[in-house]
């Protein structure tokens, strides 16, 4: 359920609710009276969110083709996993989608039907798509509280700092981080596991429509794995399309993906459900690639 403050009233009856980036978010609007009999607006169901990657090829700055034509059409919220060995092109694909300068992308990327291929990274983020990077960077001198509250204010339409900080704390608790982390500099001196969880809290703070997660489980210890899974689950609950990159099946002890893709040598070579994960464990990526004709 998405709940937003109405930004525009028309004739006192119709209401238009927009996401922070100006996209209409509503399909239906219902009113009800709460205890104080004050009228409140409840918004149910976001607009049909789709994320499409059409015939995408990705080249590195020295001209090497690392993604050789990938198409995905994700039309409902869920966890879509891309698995594959190192060097399959998974990270290149998501970073190229977000507009990293080291890559050149051919093909189209559509968000809710809109072509966002040529937008700059921050514009894409503001449209509701973001990426949890594999190795979160330290932002020296900027406290977790400050960064998260700025993000929450922008993406969740919160104007008061107190409220933004409250939300930030909730998100940190969700990923198993304590309040004390709020006063620390962003990612500075944190362990691998803490970084990964803070990165997920950051992504959650953006309330993305599409969350690309690049190996959120790598470097995370066994005990923290359920927390990582919980954060990803929360994204799905919030109605996001989650593209989860991993090459370790261990995360699926805590999380059930809606769909699994196998990427090998720059191509999607297989897709399916959890049974495909079992097959990967049994036979390995190379076997799958060769028995699916390198599709």
């Amino acid at each position: 359920m998405v709940r937003h403050r109405p930004l525009t009233w028309v004739c006192g009856v119709k209401v238009a609710v927009f996401s922070p980036c100006g996209e209409p978010l509503l399909t239906s609007v219902k009113y009800f009276f709460n205890k104080g009999s004050k009228q409140r607006l409840v918004v149910r169901g976001a607009s049909k969110m789709t994320f499409e990657v059409q015939k995408v090829k990705v080249y590195t700055s020295d001209g090497k083709e690392v993604v050789k034509g990938v198409s995905l059409s994700l039309v409902k919220p869920g966890i879509y996993t891309i698995m594959g060995p190192n060097g399959a092109g998974k990270s290149s694909l998501v970073n190229a989608i977000m507009g990293h300068q080291s890559y050149r992308l051919e093909g189209r990327v559509l968000l809710g039907g809109e072509d966002i291929t040529k937008l700059s990274t921050h514009e894409k983020a503001r449209k509701g798509i973001t990426l949890a990077i594999q190795m979160p960077l330290e932002i020296e001198g900027v406290r977790v509280a400050e960064l998260l509250s700025r993000i929450i204010k922008r993406f969740q339409g919160v104007s008061k700092t107190d409220e933004a900080l409250r939300i930030a704390r909730e998100l940190l608790h969700l990923v198993g981080l304590s309040d004390s982390i709020m006063s620390r500099y962003f990612m500075v001196g944190m362990s691998g596991g803490e970084r990964k969880r803070l990165e997920l809290a950051r992504v959650l703070a953006q309330k993305p429509r599409v969350a690309l997660l690049d190996e959120p489980d790598s470097g995370v210890d066994v005990e923290s794995m359920p927390l990582v899974a919980k954060a990803i689950e929360k994204l799905r609950e919030d109605g996001a399309i989650v593209v989860l990159i991993t090459h370790q099946p261990r995360l699926f002890k805590h999380l059930e993906p809606d769909h699994v893709y196998v990427m090998y040598n720059g191509r999607i070579v297989a897709e399916g459900g959890l049974d495909l994960v079992q097959l990967i464990e049994d036979k390995g990526y190379t076997w799958i690639a060769h028995h699916n004709g390198g599709r």
Binding site: M98, G99, H100, Q101, S120, T121, H122, A125, R126, T130, L131, I133, P136, L137, I139, E140, G141, V142, L147, I151, R154, F155, Y185, R202, Q206
Partner: peptide, 28 residues
């Protein structure tokens, strides 16, 4: 560039990201 890209993923455009980084640099 990596830092600017990272902050852009969070919705900060270059000027804002630079300001954040500079602020952080002076903060201690």
């Amino acid at each position: 560039y990596e830092k600017l890209y990272y902050l852009a993923l969070m919705g900060f455009e270059e000027d804002e990201a630079t300001w954040l980084i500079v602020n952080g640099f002076f903060e201690p």
